[in-house]
Each structure stands twice: as structure tokens, then as C-alpha cells.
Design a binder for these strands. Structure first.
Lengths: 258, 258
DNA sequence: CGAGGGTTTGAAGTGCATCAAATAGTGTGG
DNA sequence: CCACACTATTTGATGCACTTCAAACCCTCG
């Protein structure tokens, strides 16, 4: 794989600060953060880099500093089921400690990414020693659950153009006012092909469905840039088939662990 | 609703024993169980009884002693998304404590059921005071997550007959030998219409898909009784579109909280 | 027996997938 | 800076799976 270049980068001093900025670790003391970071490795990986495979023995969990990572599983005949696609500040692979110490999915970099990996052992002992942290962890898991519940709902209630609309809406800056008038410009964060997979449809369907969405809601699409002229129209079209109301932002999953 | 009869039943002495038998509470001492049970209410509800609605303020969580309960959400125009359908020994409504103290879904009895409801407060304090229990809770949540991940996968990779096959396979007694020769008889645990909804398809589709499954795998269907003549054939047909191998039993979700 | 819900069947329509091929975009080496 | 190679994206044509609407059937229970 041409792009699968990897480079270890020396852990910069501000890793602690970075970790603290993640909601899951909010309540941790500096000393605890330091403990978690013992044995940390920071690496830069190119698109296509496989971080770990389903079923592999798990020693470490990961935190995304930059870029995007997809979690997926695959059948014997190669069909992939995308479980999730995660942006920066997300954690993944950590649930292995609650299972049999193997990863419950595979993880692959899909946009050049800086990834931090940390020993699971330290995480486990922190959970055991600090009830407050255990509660943070539970909160984070519960939030992820809602996120997944919503995912299931979307797949059964929304059609392809609506799923795309929902995806776009979640890219608008959080706390955007639904009444917002002026046009909003957003950027698709990764390949359209990957977005299609993330939304459970074929690339061809994505392309056509985006066309329909454009006609229905007056958005403008130029490559991976999208301009929302009339936010309310987009919301009306998209959110009618969802149990959430607009400023849902995916039940703000920025603080989910994964 | 004709069937929505409800009767309070006096908490029998063996509630403690019942709770202890649930994996989530395995590690609890008798004293802790007793604490959890303070303020417990046991009730019998008929089909159609609404236990709580999405968004309602949550004071209690629930444990199923008997029967089946569906968790769902609905859009403004009445379309329902079934999040899960739970059998006995399952817990639900407990995640409200990790959110804003409101239920993240509605819950309705779909087969006459005996339901135990317990105060969330006691649960929360147990989590905070007993790290071991917090860990059990995390384990349980992690398991539920895998269960949901699998659900998403099934919806994207399996077609209707395969989803039904998978549903049937998970009804076979756990640890059934895949090589098992003699015919296996199982009973559908609730309405076909409800199973269809649970699997994300229309009742008509369910009926037709079950027909296809019968032809493809030599199962016999008489009302809600199904006889599996050739288990291997059923497994071959069903599990080829799944990332799990057969004796998956849904990643044994008997110990999930929900 | 008759009412009502659950289930099946038929006919027609829709949405998405699939296969095939053209086009646009991106990074490469010359 | 251009031509090439390769990938991402779009477009067209066709097929299949599932849905929808309508109606019949069946089963249970008062």
C-alpha cells in the first residue's frame, strides 16, 4: 500500500494536556493522567494503515489526535460492515478489557492521522481505583449507546438522501441556530465513498442521493464543499424521519468513548 | 386497551435470589442486594402496557422477571424504531442515570410480563461505592455494545430470510452443537408481527421471507412452532453473511444490561 | 357464532444494488 | 508544466428486494 507510511513521533510534552481535554478524562488528576500516559506511543499513519484486526489480542487502546479512523468487521467473503468512523479526540479499542482481551472490531486509518496508543493495563487499574473515573467511563459508554441506538433508527427510518442530510447537519458547527439565515459552508471530512459506507449505502447510491438532496433542499455541492443556503429546508427534509429534533448533533458524541 | 391490565403483586421473599441470579449483580453481597431492593415494586402487566415514555423523568429502572418488553422510539408521524426486544432477566431504563435523568427510549410490554422496578438512586450509590460493581456495569454495557454493533451489521449485510434464520438460531438452546443431528424444535417467543419489527422488516416481508427460508433450509413451520431438521443447512444459509461464526448466540447477551 | 387481531397472499410500485462505462481529480515522473 | 496512471465520482441501464395497498384467510376468545 503506497500510502501506508507510518512514522513514530516523539511524544510531545503536551500529551497530558491533550488527554485532559477529552471529556472522558476530565475528572482525572494530573497524576492520574501521567499514569495513563506511561508507555504512550504517538504515531503518524497514512491512509489505509491497519491499527489492529478483529480478534487480535489487545494490549493497548487508542486515542485520535488528528484524522479519521474507521472501525469495522468483515465476513469471510470480504463484505465489510462499518461500525463507526471516528474523528479526533475519540477513543477506541478500550472495550477489550471488558471482554476477553481481544478487539471486537478492526480499526483502520482513513485520513492521515496522528494516533496515540496507551496501555490498557493502566486504564483498567484507574477504573478499579477511582470510582469517579469508572462513572465517567460509564457515562461515556451510555452516550455511545445512544449514538448506536440512533444509528439503528436511522438505518430503518431514513432513506438515502435523508441519511446524507443528517450526516451533513451533524457537520455544522455545534449549537448552530436552526433559524440561522446566511448560507453555511461545510467540508466533507473524508471520501464520499467512505461516507457512503459509513451510511450503509453504495457509492453510486450516495452520488445519486446527494443529487436528490440538492434538488430538495437547495444545497450547493462543489466537490467536497457543501453550501447550505436554507438550513430550515434541509432540517425539514432530513429530520422528519427521525425521532430527534434538530440540534441533535448526534446526541453530541464528542465525548463518547468508542 | 383491552389487554393493558396491571396487577401489583406482593414482592415475594425470593426477589433477592432472583436479582443475584442476574450476571450484572453476581458480585453483589446479600446486603447490597437488599439495599437495591429497597422500594422495589413487582407488577404484572398485560400486553400493550406502557412502562415509560421517551423523555420522561426517570426515577426507577426495571428488571424483567417474565415475559417480553420492547424498547422503541417514534417519530412525529408515528413511525416506530424498535431499539430492542428483551426477555427475562434483562434490565432496562438504568442508563437514565448517565444522561439527564430521562429515559432515552419508550418501553412497552409485548407479552404478559412480570416486571420489577427499582429506584435508580440506590443503583447509583452502589456504582459509586463499589468499584467492583461499577466494573460489572461496564462489562455489561460493553457487552450490550457488541450486541448493538452486531445488530447494525445484520441490518446492512443480511437479507430478510437470513435475518430470520439468525433470529431462529439464537432461539436454539445455548451451546447447541452445530453438528447436532436430530431435529430441534423451537417456539417463536412473541408475535410474528413483532418479530418482523424487531428485525426491521414489514410483516408481509416476514411472512414471505420465512417461506423462502423454509424452502432453502428444510425447516418446518407450523404456526409459531419451528422444527429445524438440518441445523447445518440453516447455519450455512444464515451465517454466511455475518462476521460471527455459528454458536454466536448473539454474543451471549443474557448478561447485557439494556 | 361472530368480532378482532394476527397472518398470508397477490399485484404493483419504489428504492437501492449491481454492472458497465464515462468523466473528473490527484499525484507521479519525466 | 505536461502526459500518464490511478483513484474517486458520476451516469446510465437493468434487476431484485423489500414495501405498500388490498383483500382473503385463520385463529382465538368472548
Amino acid at each position: 500500500m503506497k500510502h501506508s507510511n507510518t512514522a513514530q513521533i516523539k511524544p510531545p510534552a503536551n500529551l497530558g494536556q491533550f488527554l485532559s481535554s477529552i471529556p472522558l478524562f476530565n475528572a482525572c488528576t494530573a497524576k492520574e493522567i501521567e499514569g495513563l500516559l506511561e508507555g504512550a506511543i504517538a504515531e503518524r499513519h497514512g491512509k489505509g494503515y491497519l491499527l489492529f484486526s478483529y480478534g487480535a489480542e489487545a494490549q493497548r487502546y487508542y486515542v485520535i489526535k488528528n484524522g479519521w479512523v474507521k472501525l469495522y468487521r468483515e465476513t469471510l467473503d470480504g463484505a465489510q460492515a462499518i461500525i463507526d468512523v471516528l474523528p479526533q479526540k475519540h477513543i477506541f479499542g478500550e472495550t477489550a478489557i471488558f471482554e476477553d482481551n481481544t478487539y471486537p472490531y478492526s480499526a483502520e486509518v482513513i485520513e492521515n492521522a496522528e494516533i496515540l496508543s496507551l496501555p490498557l493495563k493502566k486504564l483498567k487499574s484507574l477504573i478499579e481505583s477511582n470510582p469517579k473515573f469508572a462513572l465517567s467511563m460509564l457515562t461515556s459508554m451510555a452516550r455511545y449507546r445512544r449514538h448506536q441506538d440512533l444509528e439503528i433508527e436511522h438505518r430503518s427510518l431514513q432513506n438515502a438522501p435523508q441519511r446524507i442530510g443528517c450526516f451533513i447537519l451533524r457537520l455544522t458547527p455545534a449549537h448552530t441556530d436552526p433559524q440561522e439565515k446566511g448560507p453555511i459552508t461545510i467540508h466533507l471530512p473524508y471520501d464520499k465513498t467512505m461516507i457512503a459506507a459509513r451510511l450503509g449505502m453504495q457509492p453510486e447510491t450516495f452520488s445519486r442521493a446527494l443529487g436528490k438532496l440538492r434538488q430538495a433542499t437547495n444545497i450547493e455541492v462543489k466537490g467536497s464543499t457543501i453550501e447550505i443556503a436554507d438550513l430550515e429546508s434541509l432540517i425539514g427534509f432530513t429530520c422528519s424521519a427521525c425521532t430527534n429534533e434538530f440540534p441533535c448533533h448526534d446526541i453530541d458524541c464528542s465525548s463518547c468513548s468508542s
